[in-house]
């Protein structure tokens, strides 16, 4: 397996990401590459434009707090039952990030436009929301097949890279995502896909009809790393539950920049 260049170490995985990239990351329940987040922070990337699909959690908050992010495109940043992302709040208050407030289906639709290679996609709703006034990449147009039917046109979202955590990869680099279809949308829409997996299985998922439909084919994937419990402290499907103690401590520590930095330093060295 080592001869296949698609399998790399975590440190090498993040070498595919450059300063200024538009990077798409999934919501907390879809498979967040938290182990790789450590490497992102160590690499000290700058000016990232994060696209949270469709909302961001602790990963987005950490990347913001660590100073990697200049633009946040998201429908929400939240730690769920642990509150709003404290570093996100502070960065917004200090005017350190550009905020592209969105709504969940608009993020999905923008990615779906990229999947199809089309420049924009229409979507219902949104008209009359103040979100629209703050988005130069959203425009109200007319339904060309009807009269007096205004509809919003969203510019396609084409991330330079996406990074996520999935259940497993086979030896060919096919990634089993199960029901987490968001990961397939992410990969289809992005120019480069980086994946961490719980394990590599000596098998071919595409030769098994029961798994093939829930598999991301290797053609989309640039690199894969094994990261056992790679979504921790977040829950990962039925594999493991969220680390409530970690999340509680983070939500308190990250209320100040100093507290955040101390917390991250100890997390990176753990």
């Amino acid at each position: 397996m080592k001869s296949n260049p698609i399998f790399v170490s975590l440190a090498n995985l993040v070498q595919f990401i450059s300063d200024g990239d538009k990077i798409a990351i999934p919501k907390d329940t879809s498979g967040v590459a938290m182990s790789a987040t450590k490497e992102l922070i160590k690499k000290n990337l700058k000016n990232l434009h994060i696209v949270c699909v469709p909302i961001g959690g602790i990963q987005a908050d950490m990347l913001i707090g660590a100073g990697l992010v200049s633009t946040v495109e998201s429908s929400a940043i939240t730690l769920g039952e642990y509150g709003t992302g404290p570093r996100f709040l502070q960065a917004l208050k200090n005017n350190e990030i550009k905020m592209l407030d969105s709504t969940c289906p608009a993020i999905y639709a923008g990615l779906q436009a990229a999947e199809k290679g089309i420049p924009f996609i229409p979507l219902r709703g949104i008209i009359g929301s103040d979100l629209l006034e703050n988005r130069s990449d959203w425009k109200v147009g007319e339904n060309p097949f009807s009269e007096d039917d205004p509809i919003v046109f969203l510019k396609a979202i084409r991330p330079d890279v996406c990074i996520f955590h999935a259940h497993s990869a086979d030896k060919h680099g096919n990634v089993f995502v199960g029901r987490n279809r968001d990961l397939i949308t992410l990969a289809h829409a992005s120019a480069c896909t980086l994946v961490t997996v719980e394990k590599i299985i000596d098998d071919d998922f595409l030769s098994d009809n029961l798994r093939a439909g829930a598999t991301l084919p290797a053609i989309y994937t640039s690199a894969i790393s094994v990261a056992e419990r790679g979504a921790e402290p977040l829950a990962f499907g039925e594999e493991y539950a969220e680390d409530q103690e970690f999340l509680t401590k983070y939500s308190i520590a990250a209320k100040t920049q100093a507290g955040f930095e101390k917390f991250i330093a100890s997390w990176l060295s753990a």
Binding site: A76, L92, M99, S102, C104, P105, G125, N134
Partner: peptide, 28 residues
């Protein structure tokens, strides 16, 4: 309003997580 209150967007005095799917689901 799921975005924020006080002062002007995006530097609201109080900021909440964000609009989620509201700008769509409320219509449909």
């Amino acid at each position: 309003n799921l975005v924020g209150a006080g002062d002007t967007y995006p530097q609201h005095t109080v900021r909440w997580p964000g609009s989620f799917g509201s700008a769509y689901m409320y219509y449909l």
